[in-house]
Design a protein around this nucleic acid. Sequence first.
DNA 1: AAGTGGTCTAGACCACTGC
DNA 2: CAGTGGTCTAGACCACTTG
Lengths: 238, 238
Amino acid sequence: MAKALPRYKRLHEDIKKEILQGDISKGSLLPSENELCAKYNITRATVRQGLQELVKEGFIEKRMGLGSIVVSDRKTLGLLSFKGFSEVLKSSALSSKTLNLEPVECTAWPTPFFYELSKKEEAQNCFSLKRLRTIEGDPVMLEFTYVPQWGTDDLPEKLEDSSLFKLLQVHYEIEVLQVVQDVRAIIGSKEILNLLQLKTGDPVLEIHRKYLTDRAGFHIYSTLYCNTSKYTFSNSFN
Amino acid sequence: MAKALPRYKRLHEDIKKEILQGDISKGSLLPSENELCAKYNITRATVRQGLQELVKEGFIEKRMGLGSIVVSDRKTLGLLSFKGFSEVLKSSALSSKTLNLEPVECTAWPTPFFYELSKKEEAQNCFSLKRLRTIEGDPVMLEFTYVPQWGTDDLPEKLEDSSLFKLLQVHYEIEVLQVVQDVRAIIGSKEILNLLQLKTGDPVLEIHRKYLTDRAGFHIYSTLYCNTSKYTFSNSFN
DNA sequence: AAGTGGTCTAGACCACTGC
DNA sequence: CAGTGGTCTAGACCACTTG
């Protein structure tokens, strides 16, 4: 029972594999779109659809009049910035920990919710995670995350041994494609300040996030409260 | 001299404006792709190219067999995108203004500087801009920007009639490729609070930015102080 | 000048959602 | 069922970069 991948997807995965395996080295040019047409026996529109995925993932960049350049590590920071806390920090020398403040629950969505939910989302429950992140023992981020219960029923037990985003990718084949976030500075509530070990009147970074995935209509939502007195919240994009 | 906009871009901006102005309400369906073909006198491939931009920006989502749903009418500002203040706002219905608090000066870099400068940068002076951005009359962002004086000698007079980033692109052919930023929440100083019309003890978003350009070694630096009491600052990345 | 990616046309068939 | 978006073909002209 072969799945019969779309042709553009086939090209996308082929080239991605070649890049990751080093068959096409960073900085070099991909075959031209016309050459790829010939190689895969597809039209240019289909080739471009496939290449566009690679651009979106940050593997290649296109240069007018020149070609498609492999830049596999240029977007690294930008990619890491939404892949979750642990992935971002694991390459640095700082020790980080994540503490689940409450067991994962499956409940209705909080109301009012900070982003508008679709009817499909509203109709189902969600898993809610309440976690505190620390760096070198200092609490730096309080995170409330909401994952729709939609083919992810055994999420709680799986969550034990891996990060949320890795779990979604590996066990459910859900990949985060994009993040939209709203940022503001607020004076933290007593509960938030307490958990972040801040004093009354201290400012806190509040971030609302919506993660868009490759499963249509499947979104993950987070609210983050950050103690930025010692560590800043940094990201990179292009 | 202005080039005609590509047709897909025209459609993209039109619909985006309609969404932001509330002409198409959140949760409703866009006209079908075939209807848009007829309305704009373009083919479906072109319509899809335009709609895809809206998907990328998080304004719409597509549902197989159903249509394109408007999922966001955020009036928040994509100010964390690197395209600059004016560009982000021009498609929305909100009126924005930029006030130069001081004439553009060419001086040494401030010390200490918030990012590490290369020797080449340190060896030259920089233009410093101090600007206040307002939306609908409300001051929302105080911006200190530093541009190296490196083939940009006539920057001050050129700056009169266009945005900084457009100016750099058009007159000096410098294109911003990537942005690195550090974000924190602070309690504003008296001067900052005053300019942003905030009260003592109010929180402010502080952002340090480094813009990387296609001219090797040429960077632009900014410090932003944002009043997030009324508008949040949003961005989107992948 | 030759080749590249950027844009665009005018069709086509399919799988899916709602009625 | 009729209509939608998902995929795809076979062309075309353009602006741009490099030799």
